[in-house]
Every structure is written in C-alpha cells, then in structure tokens.
Amino acid sequence: MTNQAVVVRGSSRPGKAATIGLGMILPASVLILWQTLGHYGIISELLFPTPYTIAESFITLAIAGDLWTNFRISAARALLGFLLGGGLGLLLGIVVGLFRRSEKLLDPSIQMIRMIPSLAVIPLFILWFGIGEESKVLLIAKGAFFPIYINTFMGIRNVDNKLFEVARVLGFSRMKQIIRLVLPAAVPNIMLGVRLSLGLSWLGLVVAELIASSSGIGYMISDARQFADTPVVFVGIIIFAIAGLLSDSVVRLIERRLLRWKDSYQG
C-alpha cells in the first residue's frame, strides 16, 4: 500500500534529486523551526524536546545499553508471537483451503474469533496470564494469525481452474497437485498475509508493552512517560518505526525473490 503504482499522467515529472529535495522541504523546515523554537524556550522543552535533545538521549541510551537490551526483548516477543500465530495461521489456512470438510468445521469458529478485536482482550489476557511473557506473546500471536490464515485460504481457493485442467491432463497425482500447483499458486497471497501479519505483530507488541510490561521498548516509553522523560518517549517511537520498516523490507525482499516469475509485481 505504498504510492509506487501511481499512474504517471502526461506532465513531466521532476528528476529524482528534485523530488527528494521537494519532499525534504517540509520535514527540514519543521525540524529547524522546532529546534529554534525549543532552543529559545518558546515551546516547552518538557513537551517538545528539541531534535537535538532527542538525538542526545538516543546516544545516551544506546551507549548505556538500555536500548539494545530493551529492543532485543521486544524483538524476541514480536518474533515469537509472529511465528506462533503466523505458523498456525499458515497451517490452518492450508488445511481449510485444501479440504472442504475442514472448512465447514473450522472456518465459522475462526471467523467468530476474528471478530474480537485483539487489543480489547489485553485486560483478559493480563488477568489470565499476569503481565508475564505469555500474555504478550499470545496477544501478538492472535493478531498475526488472521491475515496469514485468510490469505493462505484465499490463495489456495483462487487457484486458476484452467491450471487444474492442465494438471489433470498431465496426470498429476493428488499430492503433486498440491505441491506443484496449489501451493506455488498461493504464494503471492501467502506473502501478502505474512506482511500484514508482521505489521499487526508490531502493533500488538506496542500495545501489549505499553499496557502491561516491565521490559521492552514499549515499557521504556511507558516508563519514560510516567517520569515525563519526553526525549526517551520519542526515541522509543522512532525505534518502533525503524523496526517496523526494517522487518517489512526484509519480507519484501523475500517476496521479490519468491515472486520473480510474476508479471505485474510491484511490491
């Protein structure tokens, strides 16, 4: 969902450097204004620490090792939850996609669970599992489960009937049909599901750590907020943004490799 697929209409576009330059105008002037206003005390340093202060705080945290420790904990939670939820989603998506009987049995229940917003169950999870790791990992897993499940299921169901005819004419066995036709054809959908799931994993992590945690980047933010240590709040937010961007880029890279054969692949 980026703006890469934009249709270029008639008018000549400025060069790449010019585009970047134009795009930088707004953030650069905001940053400079912010820094200047903060510097002269016109806006409260407490609520809007200057970019410089934020950078300083970033470096301090990085050197002290707090940042890395917290980040590792957060990343491990997100990854564990993603693998758990995503793995289960992939598995059930395949089973439900391949076998009609399992669809009739399982899909209605899964759709019911899907209606429940994952973030609303946080208090319940905390009540059940305390603020330990289980509640957070499970929460992330619940979020990560559905996109992969649904997209795998859809991908399998939407395999082109024409290719099924080819498989029949070529005498594919049932097993070969699944391995050689159904699964490869579903890969684009599955990868889309993976990307959506990953995004939800990070979001789930953020919320879980904000609400109930004693470690991790979310806790760092939450803790800093209580002590009105605003620069640290900013640092935490930036870390989340970068982590989300990086993980998404990695999946996209994998996607691009896997989908080299696709005609209209635009990432």
Binding site: K162, L163, E165, V166, R168, V169, L170, G171, F172, S173, K176, R180, L181, P184, A185, V187, W261, K262, D263
Partner: peptide, 27 residues
Amino acid sequence: PGIDKGFIFQEHRLFPWLTVEKNIASD
C-alpha cells in the same frame, strides 16, 4: 484425462512460476 492423451489449449496455460524446462517437466 491422462498422460496417454496430450492436450494443447488455446492459451498456453504454462505454470507461471516455473521456468521453461521445469514447465516441460512439470511433475
């Protein structure tokens, strides 16, 4: 249907994710 009867459709109906040689080999 079976392999004793080869069938060529109007569209090529190749598997888009397989290379030429792998498409020929298929299963």
